[in-house]
């Protein structure tokens, strides 16, 4: 019986990678923890609107038992999870994970600007597949390679996804700069090089015919904008050993406490000085409550008493 089981499980295991190689099938569970601000929520909605292969779920309650997300993703038949974890109502951490076996990347999200508040003129079809533009730096380090792969799975819309549109009209840019990953989203705007103000019918004809060198591409930003700082990479899905840790990352709590400390040190110095001054005055006998200076024999008050 054991042998039967073995052969069965092995057979299914060896089949899987081959199938995956042929077709890119991804589904992303996208959800946030409790305690996100409205901006975090809007960002989540913006991202969800650009990912037709995602399943948006209700806010997740627990912050410590993140491994439950795996089961949740399994339940929704998703193999990726994009999880927004809000802390203290201001810090946002983003978890990106492949579900059954990992890996998991934890990011700190900063410089968040949602699509609505940016007022950019760009726009794109809801559910069109984006071109993903990666910086060459992503190929230099293994952890960046891994992060790139996760972005590819999560933000890249698989071919033939259920609600995806057949045309490509936006680019998503991922750039590594200053140890952070900057994410931008642009609309692709095609214009005729020769007759810029030509009428529409004229314009559309050459495009249908095929590639021609006379179309000019320019980009118009759509939004949202945000910056991710990788913190750790875990081998498992929301668990397992940590295989990468960013030493450059400074937690926002630390930053805030440092700020508070510098402010406090100023106050402390001033308070200390005040105490010193009082002590000095007391020593000179200038304070009413302090000890009096011992009266001298030749003190004016004694001489002319």
């Amino acid at each position: 019986m054991a042998a039967v089981y073995k052969s069965l499980s092995k057979g299914s295991g060896s089949d899987l990678p081959k199938e995956r190689a042929t077709k890119n099938k991804q589904r992303v569970l996208i959800l946030s923890s409790r305690g996100v601000t409205y901006r975090h929520r809007h960002l989540l909605n913006d991202l969800a609107s650009m990912m037709p292969h995602c399943k948006k779920d209700a806010k997740f309650d627990a912050k410590s038992k993140l491994y439950q997300l795996c089961e949740l993703a399994d339940l929704y038949n998703c193999n990726n999870v994009l999880f927004f974890e809000a802390r203290k109502g201001k810090d946002l951490y983003v978890w990106l994970s492949k579900v059954p076996n990992g890996p998991t990347v934890k990011f700190h999200l900063q410089n968040l600007h949602t699509m609505e508040e940016l007022h950019f003129t760009g726009n794109c079809l809801k559910g069109s597949r984006p071109l993903l533009s990666f910086d060459a730096t992503f190929e230099t380090e293994p952890h960046l390679k891994l992060i790139k792969e996760l972005f590819l799975h999560t933000f890249g819309v698989p071919q033939g996804a259920r609600k995806s549109k057949p045309f490509i009209d936006h680019v998503m840019g991922f750039t590594v700069a200053d140890g952070k990953i900057w994410i931008r989203n642009y609309q692709i705007n095609e214009t005729e090089k020769t007759g810029k103000e030509g009428d529409d019918a004229d314009k559309s004809k050459p495009k249908h015919k095929g590639p021609k060198g006379d179309t000019e591409i320019n980009l118009v930003e759509i939004g949202p904008r945000f910056v991710l700082t990788p913190i750790i990479i875990q081998e498992g899905s929301f668990g397992g050993p940590i295989i990468y840790e960013n030493r450059q990352f400074v937690s926002p709590n630390q930053v805030r406490s440092e700020l508070r400390r510098t402010k406090a040190s100023r106050h402390n110095a001033r308070a200390e000085k005040q105490v010193e001054r009082l002590a000095k005055k007391g020593d000179l006998g200038l304070r009413t409550s302090g000890p009096r200076k011992a009266t001298d024999e030749l003190d004016t008050r004694k001489v002319f008493a």
Partner: peptide, 17 residues
């Protein structure tokens, strides 16, 4: 369903490596 889930690798409690 659209997605093919990876087969879960059983791990004895903690990670693999």
């Amino acid at each position: 369903s659209e997605v093919e889930m990876e087969e879960k690798i059983e791990r004895p409690k903690k990670g693999k490596q």
